[in-house]
Simulated scan of single mutants.
Amino acid sequence: MFAQVSTRRFLHTSRTLFSAQPGLEVTLRNALKASMKAKDKPAAACLKSILADVTNATKSGANPNEPISDEGVMGVLKKGISQRIQASGSYSPTSPSPHPENYSSLLNEITLLKSFLPEAPSNEALQQSIDKIISGLTDELKASRGVAGQVINKLWEELGDSKNGVDKKVVGKMVQEGLKRLQI
């Protein structure tokens, strides 16, 4: 319990301490060091796994000698979260063979990994922005083929840096639904 508290304290302060340093990967590596010093084995194992995935993504990229971008690291984090969410379903109390310890462990890992992602706007705020952008389109633009892409591009401009925490698939579905409501 103490180790989890110290890791959480580090994660809370890491955003301010390491904001001057470039890179989300550096923040992950520093969090790994802190969890190892705190003897928080579950957090250390989770971070080691994610950092291994980051290294793999770096080495399998277009130029393996260049460091991975923060967007690439965020993609690895999102994939790790997605995998853990899927695995937690197998261990949940409602599954055919529940394993409460594994389920709890996976939920803790998901929480840990999500703490490294930037805060994303809520789905309601996204929907409001999308609806506002769609309502501001000209009739000619609304009838064009690439209207969804134009709406998404305007949304990314509006969101700025907070777009990194947004799931692009969810945004795509929201835009398509908004455009379908427009045609009805």
Results as ranks from 00 to 15, higher is better:
66 E>N: 11
66 E>F: 08
68 I>P: 02
68 I>E: 01
69 S>E: 08
70 D>R: 01
71 E>N: 09
74 M>E: 15
74 M>G: 01
74 M>S: 07
75 G>A: 15
76 V>E: 05
77 L>W: 03
77 L>G: 04
79 K>R: 15
79 K>D: 04
79 K>P: 00
79 K>I: 00
80 G>I: 03
80 G>M: 06
81 I>F: 01
84 R>P: 04
85 I>K: 11
85 I>T: 13
86 Q>F: 11
87 A>V: 02
88 S>N: 05
89 G>Y: 07
91 Y>Q: 02
91 Y>P: 00
92 S>Y: 02
92 S>H: 10
92 S>K: 02
93 P>D: 07
94 T>H: 09
96 P>S: 09
96 P>W: 06
97 S>F: 12
99 H>K: 13
99 H>L: 02
99 H>Y: 01
100 P>G: 10
101 E>N: 08
101 E>G: 03
101 E>K: 10
101 E>A: 15
102 N>A: 12
104 S>E: 13
105 S>G: 01
106 L>A: 04
106 L>H: 08
106 L>R: 09
106 L>P: 06
106 L>I: 03
107 L>E: 07
111 T>I: 09
112 L>D: 00
114 K>W: 00
115 S>D: 11
118 P>W: 05
118 P>D: 01
118 P>V: 09
118 P>H: 06
119 E>P: 13
119 E>W: 00
120 A>I: 05
120 A>N: 03
121 P>N: 00
122 S>M: 06
123 N>R: 10
127 Q>M: 06
130 I>A: 08
131 D>S: 14
132 K>Q: 14
132 K>T: 14
132 K>E: 14
133 I>D: 12
134 I>Y: 06
140 E>P: 00
140 E>I: 11
142 K>A: 15
142 K>Y: 05
145 R>P: 04
153 N>Y: 07
155 L>S: 14
156 W>C: 02
156 W>L: 09
157 E>P: 02
157 E>D: 14
157 E>R: 10
159 L>F: 08
159 L>V: 10
159 L>G: 09
160 G>Q: 02
160 G>Y: 04
160 G>H: 03
162 S>N: 10
163 K>N: 10
164 N>F: 15
164 N>Q: 15
164 N>H: 15
165 G>Q: 09
166 V>K: 07
167 D>K: 07
167 D>E: 14
169 K>S: 11
170 V>A: 15
170 V>S: 14
171 V>G: 11
171 V>F: 08
172 G>Q: 13
172 G>E: 13
175 V>M: 07
176 Q>W: 00
176 Q>V: 11
176 Q>E: 14
177 E>C: 01
177 E>V: 11
178 G>C: 09
179 L>K: 04
180 K>A: 15
181 R>Y: 12
181 R>H: 13
182 L>W: 01
182 L>K: 05
182 L>Y: 03
183 Q>M: 12
